[in-house]
């Protein structure tokens, strides 16, 4: 990933309509962003559609990027995550309405080939050096955080996936986020 200053420069040039800068911004960031979208959507075509939507959006709204408020990659990742979550939930609704027809069957037949997201969370925990701090969040609670963040699972989906009451899942997520905040902010 290029340095923050270079991405900021590319974003500000993109805001001025510089197509070369826009292309370089895409080349530098699209693979990371596609990785994030693909984890959530589990389908390459859908993830690439989200990436496309996100960059069309970036071309038109790069002027709204505020360097003092966010780092470029954080800003771009938020755009992609939000679009991917919206797409995922739009599809979830569609599947729920058509469970009995062929589209529903086809959608359910797509195998989930994503590796367990817990591995990603563990990796992040290690690179952030917050393993000790986060030690109280274990087992299903940890699994739940990983599924929600990386696969975009809602409270009820996490509950169904882990066979846990939805009330527990809500508490786990809330507690997990509180703990994450204390651990991450404590590092600064």
């Amino acid at each position: 990933m290029p340095p923050v200053a270079e991405l900021q420069d590319l974003l500000s040039r993109t805001a001025l309509g510089d197509r070369t800068a826009f292309r370089r911004l895409y080349d530098a960031t699209a693979p990371s962003l596609l990785g994030v979208a693909l984890r959530i959507l589990n389908r390459r075509d859908r993830a690439e559609d989200v990436l496309q939507e996100a960059f069309v959006n970036v071309w038109h709204s790069a002027g709204k990027y505020v360097a003092t408020a966010s780092q470029p990659m954080t800003w771009l990742t938020a755009i992609v995550r939000n679009k991917a979550l919206d797409t995922l939930r739009g599809e979830a609704r569609h599947v729920a309405y058509s469970l009995d027809d062929e589209a529903g069957e086809a959608a359910r037949d797509i195998a989930d080939e994503r590796p367990n997201p817990l591995g990603l969370l563990e990796q992040a925990v290690d690179s952030l050096q917050i393993r000790d701090c986060l030690a109280v969040i274990q087992g299903s609670q940890r699994q739940c955080l990983a599924l929600a963040y990386y696969h975009g699972m809602s409270h009820s989906e996490c509950a169904a996936h882990l066979g846990a009451p939805i009330g527990s899942v809500k508490v786990w997520i809330r507690r997990g986020l509180d703990k994450l905040k204390r651990c991450l902010d404590g590092r600064r």
């Binding site: 197509r19 826009f22 292309r23 895409y26 699209a30 693979p31 990371s32 596609l34 990785g35 994030v36 693909l38 984890r39 993830a47 690439e48 990436l51 496309q52 960059f55 069309v56 071309w59 038109h60 966010s70 780092q71 990659m73 954080t74 800003w75 990742t77 938020a78 995550r81 990603l120 969370l121 990796q123 992040a124 690179s127 952030l128 963040y149 990386y150 994450l180 905040k181 991450l184 902010d185």
Partner: peptide
């Protein structure tokens, strides 16, 4: 967003296919 960004950084990158850029380029007037 800033706090949770390191979680996203753990995700391995995936190279998009060439037609993604072609579509973006077309839709942005390139």
């Amino acid at each position: 967003e800033a706090r949770l960004m390191p979680l996203a950084e753990a995700v391995p990158p995936v190279a998009p296919q060439a037609d993604v850029w072609t579509a973006i380029d077309r839709r942005t007037g390139g």
